[in-house]
Nucleic acid binder design. Structure first.
Lengths: 172, 172
DNA sequence: CGAAAGTCGCTGACGTATCAGCAAACCTAT
DNA sequence: ATAGGTTTGCTGATACGTCAGCGACTTTCG
């Protein structure tokens, strides 16, 4: 790092536009979720819960959304206070804690999910043609991989039929 | 919003990659700043301060980085406690407050800036060829404009010669 | 002039994210 | 079986962002 290579005008233009795009997406998504009474963090927790059988170990839930134990413990405490989830001691491993969706929690995620996906689509995908999609996918995967970010597993395949469809999320 | 249009596999692939890219960039930038002892918020405040004459009105500083008054007031309080900035009553408008960079603050931003730009370049621009750059710029501007986000003014042109070069930032 | 309206910066409350650290439970190797 | 290390989940401290609201000041307009 002898001489800093400052950004040229094209690069600066991209950087600022990139930041604006991020912000626009966040504002749209967070605002839509707020209308549904959920924070982005709530959504990240509720989505995998609703897709799974009903209960998840805190450890697994955390791994699924790429959070550390502390963060999810705080979040679960607040969500439990609001009646969105409940915790119960695990069966086999007595260290473990199971997180269950309450009826209120299930109602909330089911109500919020369609608008959420719709918002993601409207703010991002509706602006992209097929070529944009390929280009952006290539760039995003390249940048993420080059940074060596351990790809958060997330749930992977399509949601099981019969469970609430709650794909996206934002994992803050 | 009759029937939610869920993401297809290509779209989901892009969305997840996009999230990973964002996260990778944040991790890289925040980590580099943390090594320099600054938070992203610190950087956003210090950068325009170091580029301006030396002092800015709180109002103008906030407008420059697109923050509301409350947020910047909290941030300035914390930064003043750490000795990065000082506040003084304004001259003409007695409602106003002037924010000054301290020597410590100037040292901090000057030390952090080269690594910051270097990090932005390494994590993003070094992964893009000329075509990627054009494509991503087009997409980002389109998405941001479509969302109708009031483009934060930011400082605009290149930094004045003679002042610390501290372009990027992330305005969280 | 003087009242109404607007601007400015600050504060307290609350939700959130990260860090360090803890206690209980578990696992492994002797 | 048991000592040492690991995993799990939690907590407290601190920093950050947003919201509602306040007091001081300035501007506007009758």
């Amino acid at each position: 790092m002898t001489q800093p290579r400052w950004l040229n005008s094209e690069e600066e233009r991209l950087w600022l536009a990139f930041l604006r795009m991020r912000r626009a997406i966040d504002v749209a998504i967070d605002g839509q979720l707020a209308e549904a009474g959920l924070s982005p963090a709530d959504y990240d927790v509720l989505a995998p819960l609703s897709q799974s059988g009903e209960a998840l170990r805190v450890r697994d839930l955390a791994a699924l959304i790429g959070w550390d134990r502390s963060r999810i413990a705080h979040q679960l405490r607040r969500m439990e206070q609001r009646g969105l989830v409940v915790r119960s001691g695990s069966t086999t491993d007595r260290r473990g804690t199971l997180v269950h969706l309450t009826d209120l929690g299930r109602t909330a995620i089911t109500a919020a999910a369609p608008g959420h996906v719709e918002t993601v689509r409207r703010v991002l995908f509706d602006q992209l043609d097929q070529q944009d999609l390929a280009c952006l996918t290539s760039i995003a995967e390249r940048v993420a991989d080059a940074a060596g970010l351990t790809g958060i597993s997330r749930t992977g395949g399509p949601a099981r039929p019969g469970t609430a469809q709650v794909r996206p999320g934002r994992e803050s």
